[in-house]
Computed example of a mutant assay.
Amino acid sequence: MNEVINSGALNIASIVVSLVVLLVGLVLWFFINRASSRTNEQIELLEALLDQQKRQNALLRRLCESNEPEKEPQTSPAKVQEKEDDEDLIRLVAER
């Protein structure tokens, strides 16, 4: 009779342990799945933000290029040398 009671208690204990392990596994799966889905959402948001920043940079480049003042034509080195010579002569003349 003791053997029947002991074997029944072992069966119930093994079933309880199995259910506890199953419950812990389901809880862990829930939190891991939840964290994974949040991470995926954050990645999608970051990719959308990156795309918007790229568009803004392109618009800013176009805006800067359109508002850029026109460059003055380059003067030849001979003209630059003449200007420097004129400035040197002015410095040599004594003021009264």
Rank of each mutant, 00 (worst) to 15 (best):
K54V: 12
L28Q: 05
L59G: 08
L19K: 14
L59C: 06
C64E: 11
E68L: 05
A58L: 08
E41Y: 01
Q81T: 02
Q42S: 12
L19T: 09
L19V: 12
T75S: 00
E72S: 04
I90P: 01
L23G: 09
F30V: 11
L10D: 06
D86C: 00
S36L: 12
E47W: 00
A48F: 01
F30R: 14
S66I: 08
E65Q: 04
L26I: 14
R55H: 08
L63H: 13
L49E: 15
Q74V: 09
W29R: 13
S66F: 10
P77T: 06
I43Q: 10
K83P: 01
V27N: 03
N33P: 00
E41G: 12
V27C: 02
L23Y: 03
P69R: 15
S36T: 12
D86E: 13
L26G: 09
P77W: 03
S66P: 01
T39H: 12
V17M: 03
Q53V: 03
V16Y: 02
A35H: 06
R62M: 09
V16E: 05
P77A: 07
L10Q: 09
E65G: 01
S18N: 08
L60M: 12
Q81N: 05
V16G: 00
F31G: 02
D85M: 14
R62F: 02
I15K: 13
Q74P: 07
R55L: 13
P73W: 00
F30N: 13
L19F: 06
R91C: 03
C64P: 00
E82V: 07
Q53K: 12
K71T: 06
R55Q: 13
N40T: 13
Q53C: 08
V27Q: 02
A48S: 08
E65A: 04
R55M: 10
A35Y: 02
L22M: 09
T75W: 01
E65H: 03
Q81I: 00
T75M: 02
I43G: 02
D86V: 05
P77H: 06
V21H: 01
E82M: 07
I12C: 01
F31C: 03
I32C: 10
V20Y: 04
K71H: 04
E82S: 06
L10K: 11
R61V: 12
F30S: 11
I15S: 12
D88K: 13
L22A: 14
E70K: 06
N57A: 14
R91V: 08
K54P: 01
Q42H: 09
N11E: 09
L49P: 02
T75K: 01
Q42L: 15
R38P: 01
E65S: 05
L19W: 03
Q81F: 00
R91S: 12
G25T: 15
N67Y: 07
V27H: 04
L89F: 13
L23W: 05
I43T: 11
P69W: 02
Q42E: 11
L45I: 15
L60K: 15
Q52L: 08
K54H: 10
N67P: 00
S76H: 04
S66R: 14
S18Q: 10
V24N: 08
G25S: 15
N57Q: 14
K83S: 00
L10M: 09
Q56S: 12
E82C: 05
L22D: 03
T39Y: 05
I32G: 03
L89I: 13
R55I: 13
E82D: 07
E72R: 05
Q42K: 14
P73T: 04
V27D: 02
N40P: 00
P69D: 08
V24L: 09
P69Y: 04
